[in-house]
Design a protein around this nucleic acid. Structure first.
Length: 230
DNA sequence: AATCTTAGTTCTTTTACTTCA
DNA sequence: GGTGAAGTAAAAGAACTAAGA
């Protein structure tokens, strides 16, 4: 039986590379290639100028007819603070946005956009992880299916009486008639009598139904994906 | 109607790589 | 062969837009 990996954590803590790591402020009229990569630019001077430039196009970016939008790169420190804030809450209320913008010397709109993009990146990362997990799960199920088919072939080859199947509930032998092979899809299915069903239902009352299980699996998938250990 | 979020897109900057003198 | 400038494709991410709640 395919088993989900143990649910170690219920929340996804994603590690995204900090975008500010490789970012320097845009230096007007200068080539990046001309810079010594080991030389950290003077934050005070360069960034001040760059920051003001970033703040200046506030009016420009709002109307479509202005000059082409200028793009800024957030500094390491700004990115760090934004990440830190994002860890605490993934959305900001207007007050928080205002305060953070003030602290970072950015426009509230920029903070807002950063959070939007950050949420999107986070979601993308999660989707990728889920995809990876489902791929592994699919592989596991395929392998399991192969094994079971081999088993069926072996049983067929034996051409002996129907196998004795033990009930998972009572460990008692089940009637042979409860195991049938679907002629169309060649899958082994269990067909229990009404009497058996009633007995099992009474015994298992309170247990999860098939539907419950699958819906629970679906809803907790994202948390299970956090530990893909297939 | 205003505000916020998401999804999708545009566009600029950065980086890595290649070519050529 | 080593080196630096120039060109380019791809990646990253800031900013924008439209639609929906």
């Amino acid at each position: 039986m395919a088993v989900f990996p143990p649910t170690g954590s219920s929340s996804l803590e994603l590690t995204i590379s900090v975008p500010g790591f490789s970012s320097y402020p845009s230096l007007p009229n200068s080539s990046v290639r001309g810079l010594d990569i080991n030389q950290v630019p003077s934050i005070q001077a360069d960034q001040e100028e760059w920051m003001t430039a970033g703040m200046e196009d506030e009016e420009d970016s709002s109307n479509g007819s202005g000059p082409p939008r200028k793009k800024l790169r957030l500094t390491k420190e700004q990115s760090r603070l934004l990440e830190e804030s994002f860890r605490q809450h993934h959305t900001l209320n207007p007050k928080q946005k205002e305060a953070l913008a003030m602290q970072l010397k950015l426009r509230p709109r920029q903070v807002e956009v950063w959070f939007q993009n950050r949420r999107a990146r986070s979601k993308l990362k999660q989707t990728e992880m889920e995809c990876e997990y489902l791929k592994r799960w699919f592989g596991s199920l395929t392998e399991q299916n192969r094994r079971l088919q081999r088993e069926v072939e072996e049983l067929r080859a034996m051409k002996v009486g129907p196998p004795t199947v033990l009930s998972p509930h009572s460990c008692e032998p089940l009637p042979a008639s409860t195991l049938t092979m679907c002629p169309r899809c060649e899958r082994v299915t269990t067909t229990t009598t009404t009497l058996d069903r009633d007995r099992d239902r009474d015994r298992d009352r309170g247990g999860p139904t098939k539907t419950n299980i699958s819906s629970a699996s679906a809803t907790t998938l994202s948390s299970k994906v956090a530990t893909p250990a297939l």
